[in-house]
Amino acid sequence: MKREKLIAAVKEQMPEKRWLHTLGVMETSVMLAKRFGGDPVKADLAAILHDYCKYWPVQEQAKIIRENGLPQDLLDFDKELWHSHAGAFIAQSQFGIQDEEILDAIRYHTSGREGMSLLDKIVCLADYMEPGREFPGVELIREEAKSSLEKALVAGFDSTIRFLIEKGKRIYPLTILTRNDLIQQINN
């Protein structure tokens, strides 16, 4: 599918505010790809699709997870995680995206994963720090992103973990494993 048609399909799936966020993630992903030696075309494509299912009914997202062999443990955790795996499935099944690197960047942009690829890191970080994002700690993330994807992502995951703790929510284990893996990468 041509980029313009893909953009139109994504835009119609979300409210204007989320579309503006998606534009910010696209711009930031390309910038980070150029800064850290990633593929800007893949970064742009993954960013376009990263929140495709975000505003679908949670029952539909859960159904996609249950019926398509996606990680069932997701359903035991915050619904905010679901759209990334559902979105990667839809990107492949409906839009014909076959590049596993792009699909993984969509799939893991909320939780991260151990051994994140460069593209995973770029899209996840762009989602945290795009220009429209405003939350406690975002300036630290942006500052760290000037020189280190890993340090910026640790700051991002720290922010997420603090938020979940303050709200009394459970933390998806993969997020903790991701943070630990990033710290190991920094220390090595």
Rank of each mutant, 00 (worst) to 15 (best):
I102D: 04
K17G: 14
E101D: 13
R142A: 10
G112D: 03
L153K: 02
F157S: 01
Q61I: 01
G37W: 06
T160R: 14
W19E: 08
D158H: 08
L153A: 05
N180A: 15
R18N: 06
K121G: 03
F36L: 09
S159M: 09
I141V: 10
L75F: 04
S147F: 05
E143A: 13
A47V: 13
I102G: 04
S148N: 05
I7Y: 06
Q98E: 12
K79H: 05
L149H: 04
V10G: 01
Y128Q: 12
H50A: 13
E101N: 11
Y52I: 04
L45R: 13
R142G: 09
R113G: 01
K151C: 03
W82M: 06
D51M: 09
G156R: 00
F163G: 02
R66P: 01
P57G: 06
S148E: 09
L70S: 02
E67S: 15
K151T: 02
I106R: 07
L74N: 02
I171K: 04
H83Y: 14
Y128T: 00
V25E: 03
E12P: 00
D76G: 12
F95H: 07
E27Q: 15
S147V: 07
I48R: 05
T175H: 01
D181T: 04
Q92T: 08
I64F: 01
L20Y: 14
E166P: 00
S148Q: 10
P131T: 08
K2L: 14
V138P: 00
S148K: 15
H85Y: 11
D127L: 07
H85V: 08
K146E: 09
L23M: 06
V138G: 01
L177F: 14
L153I: 07
A8R: 09
N187W: 10
R170V: 03
E101P: 10
L49C: 12
L164D: 03
S148T: 10
I165S: 13
P131H: 06
E60H: 04
I7M: 11
K11A: 05
I97E: 07
R35N: 05
F36T: 14
I183F: 10
